Amino acid sequence: MAKRRKIRIKNAREIELMRAAGQVASEILQEVASMAKPGVTTGEIDAEAAKLMQKNGCKSAFLGYRGFPGYTCISVNEEVVHGIGGPRVIHPGDILKIDVGIVKNGWIGDNATTVPVGEVPDETKRLLAATEESLFAAIDKARAGLRLAELCGAVEDHVKPLGFTVVREFVGHGVGRELHEEPQIPNYRPSGKTPILEPGMILAIEPMVNAGSPHVRILDDGWTVITADRKASAHFEHTVLVTEGDPELLTNRPRTATPELLGI
């Protein structure tokens, strides 16, 4: 059996560098998310992200990773994650998932949001709200002394009663000098004993929530993940530091969804 890699605990200097990377990643995400308007192409958004990365003295954490061809991941409607920017035109009623990961001074900031384009149905708004709220339910469990399973389970515990499902094949992860570090962070409560969270752990928590079936498949481009039933999917992500007290969002930004539609 392969030995599981140890979860890296970041020291004070490393945490400062991660704060800087997270802030830049958040700023770039917010700027490119504001471009999500009818008539814009996903390729134009990706190209703008590339310019902003250069302007901010950083590079994409995704470009070239295992051969990935984009600066960002841009996924539309039934596309869950890992979509590639290109000629696809954004239309009113679409939802656009934008995932921005950057490397600054050797350290990674990783975050994602889902943007409604123009007016979308209330059920779509509910999906976005449930997904973003589930992210914050999980973040609230990113506390020293709790087991990782409690954090993971918080996502499904939040969205399942609302009629939504979580993607099981793709998960969040630890993050630092590498894009994907230990631990893996599924959006459901894993079986067995999971690690106890400690101050200095940095986690990329990223609920991927579907309006219909939890099942997904990968398109012929080898990257784009779509829902098997072609129903909509939402994705939100923050890079989070476990501290001695409250969790710290290293990719802090304003919330965007409308939780009042959830009726809870």
Rank of each mutant, 00 (worst) to 15 (best):
P247D: 11
A129D: 10
N111L: 14
H235N: 10
D122G: 14
H91F: 12
K51T: 03
E248K: 01
V117L: 14
R189V: 03
E206H: 15
T239G: 03
T114F: 13
P207L: 01
A20Y: 05
T124S: 06
I226R: 01
I196M: 00
K3G: 02
A36R: 01
F68C: 09
G67T: 14
L162R: 13
L249G: 06
M201P: 15
V120W: 11
D246C: 08
A144Y: 07
I45S: 04
E169M: 14
V76I: 14
S75V: 07
T72H: 00
R168V: 09
T131I: 05
R8G: 01
T251K: 04
V32L: 10
H238W: 04
R8Y: 04
P38G: 12
K6H: 11
D140A: 15
D110P: 14
L63R: 13
G93V: 13
E132S: 14
F236P: 05
F62R: 04
T131W: 03
L29F: 08
K193T: 13
L261F: 11
L249V: 09
L96Q: 08
I226S: 00
G174E: 08
I95P: 06
N77T: 09
A12M: 13
A234W: 06
V81N: 13
F68E: 06
W107P: 15
R147Y: 04
A154M: 05
N105R: 12
P38V: 12
E182Q: 11
R88S: 06
G174K: 09
H82Y: 12
A138K: 05
E27T: 12
S75H: 07
V167L: 02
V80P: 02
L127G: 03
T224L: 00
G222Q: 02
G192M: 12
M35Q: 04
K125P: 00
T42C: 09
K59T: 15
A12S: 15
G118F: 15
G70C: 07
A49P: 02
G83I: 04
V89G: 09
P207Y: 09
G174Q: 10
E248L: 04
T258C: 09
G85E: 01
L146N: 14
A61P: 14
G172H: 13
G245F: 11
A138I: 02
V100M: 09
R8C: 01
I9E: 02
V175H: 01
E156H: 03
F164A: 06
G106M: 08
D140I: 06
P214V: 04
V80Y: 01
R5M: 11
L29K: 06
I98W: 08
A232F: 15
A129L: 11
R253Y: 13
A20E: 14
R177D: 07
P92E: 12
